[in-house]
């Protein structure tokens, strides 16, 4: 009897220990987010106080400052155009390619697409900068969307290969027998069936396009700057507004958090494309 209750106490203790550990681990990984949100409600002077303050009178001033800058909405708009443009174009280019790879092979091509993901952005940037300048594509939406396609196309292709492979081939064969062309099978049978995959691939590509900093840093100008470049420029201004930086960082991260909630599982799958099956 004593043995059993001892065992039970031990189990409870181990469980408590596990949850304590869990909270600590999550706390470490979440802390910068918490700190970001806290500091976004502090004044500049409060942020630079030492030792750091955890309890304070919150202010909305930082957010008000960010919103009052006309540029903020302009750059948000730019970010939307570029991300959605790159995802939309990425779908047009990527979906047929993903279907062809899933159904007809073309493995070599698939790895060519994957290689884009392995090459550092800076490697594209030098030749792009020169060519874009010649063609007048610097500081244009077209140029930025072209650049961001290098991010979205590999993601979309590699995620969608998996979804197209899961479409039952019998359905496609039946449509063929009924006289549907191969292109028709893709458009009328396969595409409607992979709609859930389409959503997660799109959201994933959107996140990475939204986050992109290096390409717009060089290729965008006053007219097309995106949010990451704006947030970065907050730091390099002569006056340094820490509250503004924290508020803008929180604002730029918010849509990403919402999108992550929507795609959870596909997220890891998307990041490990071609590397790990997961």
């Amino acid at each position: 009897m004593r043995g059993v209750s001892g065992n039970r106490a031990g189990r409870l203790l181990r469980r408590a220990g596990f949850y304590l550990g869990l909270v600590m681990v999550l706390g470490v990984f979440i802390f910068p987010f918490v700190w970001m949100v806290l500091n976004s409600f502090k004044t500049h002077d409060r942020i630079t106080e030492y030792p750091p303050v955890f309890w304070f009178e919150p202010t909305l001033g930082n957010y008000r400052n960010v919103f009052q800058q006309a540029q903020f909405f302009e750059y948000t708009w730019n970010s939307f155009i570029v991300s959605f443009g790159a995802v939309g174009m990425g779908m047009v280019l990527g979906l047929p390619a993903a279907y062809a790879i899933a159904r007809y092979g073309h493995r070599g091509f698939a790895f060519g697409v994957l290689a884009c993901r392995m090459i550092p952005g800076i490697a594209f940037l030098v030749p792009w900068f020169i060519v874009f300048r010649m063609m007048g594509l610097l500081d244009s939406y077209v140029g930025l969307i072209l650049a961001h396609l290098v991010i979205t196309v590999p993601l979309i292709v590699w995620i969608m290969i998996g979804f197209f492979e899961e479409v039952p081939i019998e359905l496609e064969e039946a449509a063929r027998i009924d006289g549907c062309s191969r292109a028709g099978v893709f458009l009328r049978i396969a595409l409607p069936l992979v709609r859930p995959g389409l959503v997660s691939a799109g959201i994933l590509a959107l996140i990475f396009s939204w986050n992109s900093f290096l390409f717009p840093l060089i290729l965008a100008g006053v007219n097309t700057k995106t949010l990451p470049v704006l947030v970065y420029s907050f730091m390099t201004f002569d006056y340094l507004d820490l509250g503004g930086i924290y508020a803008a960082s929180a604002l730029i991260t918010l849509p990403v958090v919402l999108m992550v909630l929507a795609v959870q599982r596909q997220f890891i799958r998307g990041l490990t494309i071609g590397g790990v099956k997961g």
Binding site: L26, P32, F213, S249, A250, Q264
Partner: peptide, 29 residues
Amino acid sequence: LARTLLILPIAGTPVAFALIWRNMYNPSY
């Protein structure tokens, strides 16, 4: 929930994180 929270550092905007970490590493405060 734990899985979602752990995805956030991977998914968040790197520039925003970098600015926050830069500030957290500030040598005076």
